[in-house]
Nucleic acid binder design. Sequence first.
DNA 1: TATAATTTCGCAATCGTTTCCGTATTTTAA
DNA 2: TTAAAATACGGAAACGATTGCGAAATTATA
Lengths: 341, 341
Amino acid sequence: MSTGVNLKELAAELKLSPSTVSRALNDSYEISEETKKKVVSMAEKMNYQPNPFARSLRENKSKTIAVVMPERMSSFFSKVIDGIEEVTQQHGYHLLVYSTHEDVEREKKIVNLLMNGRADAIVMSVSSQTSDISHLARLHERGFPLIFFDRICESIPTTKFITNDYESAFEGTKHLIQQGCRRIAFLMLSKELSITKERYRGYLDALKAAGLSPTPSLQVTCAHEEENNIEAIRKMLLSEDRPDGLVSSVEKLALATYHAVKRTDIKIPEDLKIISFFSNLSIAGLLTPSLTTITQPAFTIGEECAKLLMKKLTKPRQPDLPNQLISIPSKIIIRSSTIAV
Amino acid sequence: MSTGVNLKELAAELKLSPSTVSRALNDSYEISEETKKKVVSMAEKMNYQPNPFARSLRENKSKTIAVVMPERMSSFFSKVIDGIEEVTQQHGYHLLVYSTHEDVEREKKIVNLLMNGRADAIVMSVSSQTSDISHLARLHERGFPLIFFDRICESIPTTKFITNDYESAFEGTKHLIQQGCRRIAFLMLSKELSITKERYRGYLDALKAAGLSPTPSLQVTCAHEEENNIEAIRKMLLSEDRPDGLVSSVEKLALATYHAVKRTDIKIPEDLKIISFFSNLSIAGLLTPSLTTITQPAFTIGEECAKLLMKKLTKPRQPDLPNQLISIPSKIIIRSSTIAV
DNA sequence: TATAATTTCGCAATCGTTTCCGTATTTTAA
DNA sequence: TTAAAATACGGAAACGATTGCGAAATTATA
């Protein structure tokens, strides 16, 4: 791999010193317009590309953001990253992307690796296994810029971007009740997860507001393995107090539910109405029947994370990321899976 | 952001020179076992993390791989990256991930940015717009390690990983014919794409082998915008010589076809049988009717790309990546969308 | 015992930038 | 006309690691 020209060679060609060339390329006021032109044109001619590591070493920043998330095959996370990339790319930033595969040990390893400054900031959504958050707390205490989205750590005082989890779950559950549901199931990944807690609370409060009492056996905590989830849901669906409605707090469990239903003779929406947090609109419309979704503003969440970070990182002497919770509302899109017949 | 301890501070604490400490940490034969122990334990105690940029600058390598692909919201590409990450993470490599959004201009920008050595290698799948490949050729001519997967550049002499596109398309088309189809449509993204060419060839040859002649109006070239694709497909499906079978060369066009069919009263598989290159098995099973798929070994492709790169990058004085085409076969999974009634 | 070989470590250069100084030249002000 | 200020540039020190080379201390060999 033949490395290109460096600053010294470029300077030699121009019969200038490296410092002058550097300043010229960085548009310093100390350099005359005339020399700037010369330098810039010669740099183009010789295809000079500054070495990013020399620069990072000197400036102590990498122009790189790390994104850590639980899984890649999820339209929600894909769209968030698209949103982040859209903003960061305009500022010349690069994206390191890591998947924890819902494994807290991998999450710890990744976070610890990132503490050496390879990235200027971390945008993350924690794994469903994450209960001990000391690795993240340590990162933040050291002053490392850290932003959470979706699955947040409440106790770490930094900026977090979420959707209106509580209200959406409340409204979604209320919608099921309005459609006549009385025994409503709730599917979740892990009780530790911030999104689980909030969405669950919204679900419970909606039940309470309607004078309904929750049935413990209808609240299913799932795991990572899809087949196990499908079977757990199927059993719940066929249990004694089988539900007539179902709220899924994450996309993948809605899909698991459709799989589970296929293994029974339950009819949606006649026997069971389903609503789910879901980001893949194209798929939602193709499911049979089409799925009523609580659609999170995934792309916007990514954009907002990135905008905040860019402000903090590209301007000098910015304050720490404020300890705030920013909520961007979801939209409920009613489709066939909850239409009363 | 308070940077941690560096080598000099660690050395001072140990009353040793930085060079000795560096060698001790790198397990050099020149250092006694005794000092090694001391150094390592002190490094742990002080939580020493080597500065990656200083190291990269000195060693002229970044322990980073760049992955450039056309889109993120695709189960195929997601799985490929999961495969790559699985291997590279074990070697301590990091992943920079870029999406071109099927835009060749963005692809060029990204590739040019990567020429400065920010990554040690690039794994890429070109955009559907890419016909001029000079940006990639230049990269390769400079000796930059470059690997293609799926959507390859035939003319660039490096290693490419694909699936058996021709054979799979041939077998898939043959399957439709065996199920009684006579007028078989073909959906593609861009005629420039390597996968389009090969899969199209397989499709044509299968027709020919059965004594069928292709109908030009049944061969639809689609673009990026989903709604436009759906409408184009719908029109084709309702045209005079409407098809009774359809091969989709990529996942998203199969979904578009399902959407298009929903807007007509065409019945699958009675009126139209569908087969598609498709990686999202969970979704394939949930479509109505479930979709017969040509399932690419996405994860394995990613793993193989990464394995080859790791061999090249982690061992000293490796030869250039050989000019070879490695094909990993797909599997055809027959579901309801092609079952004759 | 004297010399050679081995072990173990330190000094200093290096990677390619940026930037703090210093300085020569030109312009402005008094 | 002279002093002060502004302009335009170069020298050299950083940033934090790795490594070639030299040297002291120890061990082996003759």
